[in-house]
Design a protein around this nucleic acid. Sequence first.
RNA 1: AGGCGGAUAGCUCAGUUGGGAGAGCGCUGCCCUUACAAGGCAGAAGUCGCAGGUUCGAUCCCUGUUCCGCCUACCA
Length: 917
Amino acid sequence: MSQPQLDKIYDPKQVEERWSRRWIELRLFHASVSDRRPSYCIVIPPPNVTGSLHVGHALNNTLQDILIRRRRMQGYNTLWMPGMDHAGIATQNVVERQLQAEGTSREVLGREEFLNRVQQWKEHSGGVIIAQLKRLGASCDWERQRFTMDPGLSEAVKLVFVRLYEDGLLYRGERLINWCPRCLTALSDIEVEHEDSTGKLYTIRYPLADDPSQYLLVATTRPETMLGDTAVAVHPEDDRYRHLIGSRVQVLLTRRTVPIVADPILVDREFGTGAVKVTPAHDFNDFEAGERHGLPRIKIMDIHANLQLTDALAEPEVIEAVNGLPAAKARPKIEQLLAERGFLEKAEPHKMALGKCYRCKTVVEPFLSDQWFVNIKPLAQPAVHAVEDGRVRILPESWKNNYLGWMRDIKDWCVSRQIWWGHQIPAWYCEGCYGSDFLRRASDGQPLVPSDAVPIVAQTKPAACSTCSSNRLVQDPDVLDTWFSSALWPFSTLGWPQQTPELKVFYPTSTLVTGLDILFFWVARMIMMGLKFMGDVPFRDVYIHALVRDAEGQKMSKSKGNVIDPLQVMDQYGTDALRFTLAAMASPGRDVKLAEERIEGYRNFANKIWNAARFILMHLDGKREARPAHDRSVADRWILSRLNATIRAVNQEVDQYRFDRAAGILYHFIWHEYCDWYLELAKLPLQDPSTADAARARQTLLETFEHLMRLLHPFMPFVTEEIWQTLPHEGNSIVIQSYPAEQPEWHSEDAEDAYSLLQRAVSLMRTGRSLLDYAPGKSIGLHVMGAQEQDRSRLDSLAPAIGHLARGPVSVTPTITTPSADSGLLSLAAEGITVGVAVEGDVDLVKALDRIKKQKDEAGKEMNRLSAKLANAGFVEKAPQEVIDEHRARLQLLTRDHGILDRSEQQLQDILRSRTA
RNA sequence: AGGCGGAUAGCUCAGUUGGGAGAGCGCUGCCCUUACAAGGCAGAAGUCGCAGGUUCGAUCCCUGUUCCGCCUACCA
């Protein structure tokens, strides 16, 4: 035995720093396009360059790394494509806040200078993120980093835009869109978060134009928008109002009258009064109704969502009261005016959903505006089919319906944003045709380009206007939705639109690993774009993992004090511990609430492994054993059989993305089978290192452990690499060693049976020793009763091992005597064998009896179990008589030992009776 | 409003052809046994949200219900 070559406690810090650097130096993560092996590719969900990574990223990237590392070890040509997202609005907001703190603004800087600032921030933030990913052990091909605004990817964006336009799948038009009055930009439907809030439902009297003494009751939650009313709608079959259809009502506080129209789609007769005001410029439903009835659209708000009324729109008194106010502040004023004039019938509390900007939480306003839209239905159709027919698998499958439901009901996608950070829209307008005025309006956020302007859509700036030949062409100042470029990620990162070898080798990619929160934002759009531009799905499997709620999100909140910073965790417990925790908690269908105690537990696990390695190295002492293929001991055959089962199970679980189960299996096997049992057993032959038995034990210890390091490596890359390097090995890194595969010849039912018997016997003896406070080292007898002859002889041959593990000399004695506490024998039963533990010396019998009583309860449960099994056998396939007899015999044996016959015998009779009935 | 998910030990969570209720942490007792005290052995602890139903038998399947969470949504 030699001095330990490793420290007593595993110190992750320096190990992790060293290996994350070394792996990259060795270029182990680099994928080659000339590699002929089957390929396996994952594109990273590109983190936003808005700051640093949170625990959700750690989870996401750990899972990807597990998949990638295993495939790499299995011999695939693996590519994990790393990169980042420019995250338009989010990043712009971050930098704008910085500017605000400096007392300046983007308007002051101007567009060009501002973009420089954002670029600087991107360099900084991007660097932080890459460092964090490396720290996490992410085995990305770092030589291939991509950014959504790289020149190549920007080319892809422009080309896609032009092609979609040419194919009639992209158009510009004045529509009602979601407008964030703080970000001053349009948002797509899914960029609006809905939040419940309590408002009021107002019932307002609208006087009839023909007879102002009569009025129509109209219900609304937003009375301030009545200043933009252009109709009141009722249901065509509503007898209350049928006679009014076609006549007009006075719009209060204005000088207008509007028609009463019949609209069965807009109006629900049951709700409110059955009459609805129609404000096409400020409500999505009203907009559509307005289109159906050819109603004018009256805009009453500016871009800040403040009321902006002209004399033509409202009475002077009203204008004075509300002009320039945001809607929420104007509402009570309007309410007051209506009440004063006796037109407010009632106002009652009412629950409604409030739309908020997903980036800044400001209440969004439906806003009439010129924007670019993707005509999405023709793209969605094939993307629905691809999931329906399984070309793309969404896992867990429960999310599939979520996806399909959303896709089938999808609405056109507003892709233009009135911000500066992003891909500027490749469309030009001719100043010769439209004057040079319209762009200047852009700075105050007003609609940027005339609605009727005809854009020239092209990848590069055209030389001249085709209509007037002017060369004064200006580019559309808007940029694209950040998700537009993300949608191209699986092929733009591989070099599209160039026909690169990367595309050929790695597209379609294999698996996408992502959180549910971006299923619609990102996954759905990648599938649509992949099918459209590559003619094939972007990935085969989509694995959707649970969410870890971060400080900004809902679940983890700073006020609750449960926010966990991955960097801090990695510092404190080590990266492997964090990774293993995340993998173990990645059960489908449940959000991950990260418990720090759990991380600590897996830190201890890493240390356990470390110390097992120390033990092996200590005994190895430079010795190399020839492989004893033919004379494995029973213990060796047992642990190899268990190892084989573990290898099979881990592979199966990872194949099904059950990282949690795979982690659990590894943990249990390494700690509670390999360390607790096999390693302890091996100490027996190792007592004399010179023997053949010792050599044999060393060999199997090492062989099993080396397999385990490889099996565990994708989960805990650092500690396994560090240990593997100290074991006898060939090659320069565990990263590219083969991943363990099932070895059927290791399977041994016989050895497993024998050792399960051994484990039970040892446990019982330990229990007896503990219950009686019977000191270790004292001789202990094992009396075997009621066991099969085979079991007895097995126990006999295993006696030295049992004695070793039970801590005391042991004698195995077949006995037919009935043991009892009185005779100084403690009898314990479980799983069909009964052992009596003979103790020497004085025993506190009162204490012993008290404890034995508890054991009887266990025996009672055992009988219930047997009864259940018997009943099952009887009902399933008609239990043979000998099975019944065997169970009866066991019952009687247990009963005789513990004197609780009546209940169980009665049960048995009941079962037999019901079986024959 | 609709859809989905969750409710299991003090805490965080596993648990599918329906039959034995589990892990980690915490807790109790014993042990510094030369890999590991971040350890070993033994143990206590749960009417599996509630109420019905199907079944010989339900944490599991069905119906209803309560609470929590998420997604989608135009109910003025």
